[in-house]
Amino acid sequence: MHTHRIVSIIDDDESVRIATSRLVRSLGWDVRLYASAEDFLDSGEISDVACIISDVQMPGITGLEMQRRLLDGGIMLPIIFISAFASETVRRQALGGGAVCVLSKPVDGGAVSRCLETLPAEGGEPH
Score class of each variant (00 low, 15 high):
residue 54 S to F: 07
residue 55 D to G: 08
residue 55 D to H: 03
residue 56 V to P: 07
residue 56 V to G: 02
residue 57 Q to D: 14
residue 57 Q to R: 13
residue 57 Q to A: 14
residue 58 M to P: 11
residue 58 M to S: 07
residue 59 P to S: 11
residue 59 P to Q: 11
residue 59 P to F: 02
residue 60 G to V: 09
residue 60 G to A: 10
residue 62 T to K: 05
residue 62 T to D: 15
residue 63 G to D: 03
residue 63 G to L: 04
residue 63 G to Y: 02
residue 64 L to Q: 02
residue 65 E to F: 01
residue 66 M to K: 07
residue 66 M to C: 15
residue 66 M to N: 11
residue 67 Q to P: 00
residue 67 Q to Y: 01
residue 67 Q to I: 00
residue 67 Q to M: 13
residue 67 Q to H: 12
residue 68 R to G: 00
residue 69 R to F: 00
residue 71 L to Y: 07
residue 71 L to R: 15
residue 72 D to A: 14
residue 73 G to I: 00
residue 73 G to N: 13
residue 74 G to C: 04
residue 74 G to R: 04
residue 74 G to Y: 03
residue 75 I to H: 03
residue 76 M to K: 15
residue 76 M to I: 11
residue 76 M to R: 15
residue 77 L to A: 06
residue 77 L to Q: 08
residue 77 L to H: 10
residue 77 L to Y: 09
residue 78 P to G: 03
residue 79 I to V: 15
residue 79 I to Y: 03
residue 79 I to W: 06
residue 80 I to D: 03
residue 80 I to G: 01
residue 80 I to C: 04
residue 81 F to M: 05
residue 81 F to P: 01
residue 81 F to D: 07
residue 81 F to R: 00
residue 82 I to Q: 10
residue 82 I to E: 04
residue 82 I to G: 08
residue 82 I to D: 04
residue 83 S to N: 11
residue 83 S to L: 10
residue 83 S to V: 12
residue 84 A to L: 06
residue 84 A to N: 05
residue 85 F to P: 01
residue 85 F to M: 12
residue 86 A to Y: 14
residue 87 S to C: 01
residue 87 S to R: 09
residue 88 E to V: 09
residue 88 E to G: 00
residue 89 T to Q: 15
residue 89 T to A: 15
residue 90 V to D: 13
residue 90 V to L: 14
residue 92 R to M: 13
residue 92 R to D: 15
residue 94 A to F: 08
residue 96 G to Q: 01
residue 97 G to V: 12
residue 98 G to R: 04
residue 98 G to N: 05
residue 98 G to Q: 08
residue 99 A to K: 08
residue 99 A to P: 07
residue 100 V to F: 02
residue 100 V to R: 12
residue 100 V to A: 04
residue 101 C to L: 10
residue 101 C to I: 04
residue 102 V to F: 14
residue 102 V to S: 05
residue 102 V to G: 02
residue 103 L to W: 13
residue 103 L to R: 09
residue 104 S to M: 07
residue 105 K to H: 12
residue 105 K to I: 08
residue 105 K to Y: 11
residue 106 P to V: 04
residue 107 V to I: 15
residue 107 V to P: 08
residue 107 V to Q: 09
residue 108 D to A: 06
residue 109 G to E: 03
residue 109 G to C: 00
residue 110 G to V: 02
residue 110 G to E: 14
residue 111 A to Y: 01
residue 111 A to T: 01
residue 111 A to M: 11
residue 111 A to K: 12
residue 112 V to E: 10
residue 112 V to L: 13
